[in-house]
């Protein structure tokens, strides 16, 4: 076997799946879970689903190389995707390659962020992407493998090897996969992608470098205001990167919390405005050293409060999950933007 670094095709002889997994681990291609061999015919079937998608990819950090569709497809095959998932994977790659996403910073950082992928549009149902109960958890092939395919692409094409170019101090479980759909059907508001200017019938993937979801438990509040107070309390912490106040974060309301908000007259803009003003950190909770640290980064308190985003519009609002009195706060890396890409029409 020759050095595979520079060649597109690799002949592995009579190697079986077990031996392939040992070989792939030796090459540094694995995330630790077993991989499906990316045989030439399987990869070709995946690439076929993107026929006509000729838009070139920009260079991918940290290797600063140009991805090819077959190499991305090889990672999607290894991740366990079905071929019909591949256009979503390609859109996810394009989303994280948007300069506003800050891929290099998010891969090389010591922070534990991973690319969160949220899917909107009819393709959620067509591919079986979980938007309801346990949507951040295990159980659905599309969620598990689309997020994993992007991670493997960043590992193998991008070169974000843990401990070398991926310098995350502790990492997070979200680095295996982090993909879900918005529960548009149970949302009382317009879908997230429609609020961003897309048509309801568009299929859109949104990427945000993020920590895993932090649960917001509120079984007690019976009003929208009460729920927002609990949400704000969960966000108002000193140790997340949002304390620098330079980036969006996402609140994924559970449908029951969202329904209560809607019943009490809260639209999305009002929720954003309320959280912007309520989810703050008082200077008394911040160490003196960190106050100097934030000053140097031009994050100054206003009336003794640190605001956690640049504006109310930075607060991304979506609805996800099933029955229950839970929502989720998804903090981001900071120095980033939510990047949305529409899938090509089929």
């Amino acid at each position: 076997m020759s050095d595979p670094a520079e060649q597109e095709f690799i002949d592995l002889g009579d190697m079986d799946a077990d031996a392939f997994n040992e070989y792939a681990a030796e090459q540094g291609w694995s995330d630790g879970f077993p991989l499906i061999p990316p045989t030439e015919d399987k990869v070709a079937r995946f690439v076929e689903t993107c026929r006509g998608d000729n838009e070139p990819f920009p260079a991918m950090s940290p290797r600063q190389v140009l991805p090819t569709l077959p190499a991305i497809a090889a990672n999607a095959v290894m991740a366990g995707c079905r071929a019909e998932y591949f256009p979503v994977v390609v859109a996810a790659v394009r989303a994280v390659l948007n300069p506003d996403y800050n891929l290099h910073g998010t891969l090389a950082t010591t922070h534990p962020c991973a690319p969160m992928l949220m899917v909107n549009g009819p393709i959620r149902q067509e591919l079986g992407i979980n938007c309801g109960s346990n949507c951040f958890g295990q159980g659905k092939r599309a969620n598990a493998t689309i997020g994993r395919a992007l991670q493997l692409t960043l590992l193998n094409v991008g070169g974000a090897k843990p401990g070398t170019m991926d310098r995350s101090t502790q990492g997070s479980p979200a680095k295996y996969t982090f993909c879900f759909g918005e529960n548009e059907e149970d949302s009382p508001w317009a879908p997230y992608h429609v609020r961003r200017g897309f048509d309801a019938s568009d299929n859109v993937i949104t990427a945000l470098p993020a920590e895993p979801p932090h649960n917001i438990n509120d079984h007690g509040s019976t009003t929208g205001l009460g729920i927002l107070q609990t949400v704000a309390g969960t966000i108002s912490q000193t140790g997340a990167n949002v304390i620098y106040g330079k980036a969006p974060y996402l609140i994924a309301f559970g449908p029951e919390h969202a329904a209560t908000l809607k019943r009490d007259g809260w639209d999305v803009e009002a929720v954003q405005e309320k959280l912007y003003n309520l989810a703050t950190v008082h200077v008394s909770r911040v160490s003196e050293d960190n106050r100097h640290n934030y000053d140097e980064r031009e994050q100054f308190p206003v009336n003794d409060l640190y605001y956690l985003t640049r504006s109310p519009a930075d607060i991304q609002i979506a609805v996800a999950g099933g029955p229950g009195k839970h929502s989720a706060y998804i903090p981001t890396f900071g120095m980033t933007e939510a990047c949305s890409v529409r899938l090509p029409a089929r």
């Binding site: 670094a5 060649q7 592995l12 061999p37 260079a59 290797r63 190389v65 991805p67 090889a74 493997l152």
Partner: peptide, 15 residues
């Protein structure tokens, strides 16, 4: 078994 190299990529011309 012949596979597609999952690390394969093109070098930007400048680089």
């Amino acid at each position: 078994m012949r596979i597609i190299n999952p690390s394969f990529a093109l070098q930007p011309q400048l680089a």
